[in-house]
Design a binder for these strands. Structure first.
Lengths: 198, 198
DNA sequence: ATCATATTTGACAAATTTGTTAAACAAAAA
DNA sequence: TTTTTGTTTAACAAATTTGTCAAATATGAT
């Protein structure tokens, strides 16, 4: 029996390539052949390392979910004041979106096709914490009076949508890559001004 | 040569079913067989009426695009004051989203796979008009000072995202259908409060 | 060097999906 | 009725995609 692998470069290579294709280039329907070609390996290796195409998909999806949740948790449970947390979250989100612009979209389409949620408990803990801090911020007059859920929806929407919808926006508004990057950079302040009263 | 058809019920039936599957249920990868089954017709009829699967897809996509643009145009070129136009737009969007929750998402994924835009000219005219009215509203202090493009992004994001992301949100936040409907209803006022200063 | 194990490859089989064709069927026109 | 036109079906062919298997190759340990 072998518990260790001498060279798992290929396995990692395949997984990363799949990640890049899905999240980086939006090729949600990439075939095993396309993935193998892009990774520069034989197609059969995908079956060898991951048993099936679906298994590979699930794995990439799970990893992404975990990563995103950890990232968010580390911000939300930090010692930063509420408003700074949101700023941090925006920064992180845009950074992520720069490398993997289609990730959010992929997550949604996966959920649409009946996908379960991984660490539900962790998410609940985080939401609870958020709700508490949100109440305080609202009392302080930092935020317009509203249900916390509405604030969350506002926040996620303002951050994620322009990233997920980028190709649509760019084409509709005739914006080149450089111009859109600038707009996204400017957005951090815009979002903060939109979310907070003062 | 035949310019008229005695009974185009089947053709319409297929098109509507495809529309429902794509936009209503989010089955973006539905096969011709699935579409035919859902429509209760023989699969070959899809080829008979639309020549190929792709042609059917293109047609449904084009129709949806046209419809959405017409809808928006009729509001934007109406005699309503700026703020009322936005309200109208929100109402229309939510109504649309109720029947076809996955439409926005579908549009984006189509654009991601390199799709052209239909009536570019019409869109440009509309944007120009919007920019003009936006400038006025900003001068009047109705809106925080920002680039019009940022306002548009804010608006579309706040409206469309919670609709497109509904399955994700609902599962994450443990909300049943009724509760989410209520949240969407409440959102109109929230969005207006978020977009406008007074 | 030999052996055992891990990795990679090519060839093949199976499944899925799409598109074509010829024939059956229905309905209106001649 | 016969003909014509339009519609629907079943059977087939082609293409695509996935998964399996045995053989080939590499790599490290003995």
């Amino acid at each position: 029996m072998s518990t260790e692998r001498k060279d798992e470069a290929t396995e990692v290579q395949i997984k990363n390539t799949a990640k890049r294709l899905f999240f980086g280039e939006g090729k949600f329907n990439a075939t095993t052949q396309e993935i193998a070609d892009a990774a520069g390996v034989n197609r059969t290796l995908i079956n060898y390392y991951f048993r099936s195409r679906d298994k590979l998909f699930d794995l990439v999806f799970k990893d992404a979910q975990e990563y995103e949740q950890k990232r968010t948790e580390s911000i939300m449970f930090s010692e930063l004041p509420f408003k700074a947390k949101i700023e941090e979250f925006i920064d992180e989100s845009f950074l992520m979106a720069k490398e993997y612009p289609y990730m959010e979209l992929y997550m949604v389409t996966q959920f649409n096709q009946g996908c379960y949620f991984k660490d539900e408990e962790g998410m609940d803990r985080m939401l609870k914490k958020f709700y508490e801090e949100f109440e305080v911020a609202m009392e302080e007059g930092l935020i317009l009076k509203m249900e916390p859920i509405q604030f969350i929806i506002n926040m996620i929407s303002l951050i994620s949508f322009p990233v997920a919808m980028r190709p649509l926006f760019q084409k509709t508004m005739h914006l080149d890559d450089k111009e859109y990057e600038r707009i996204l950079t400017d957005r951090k302040q815009i979002i903060m001004d939109t979310l907070f009263c003062k």
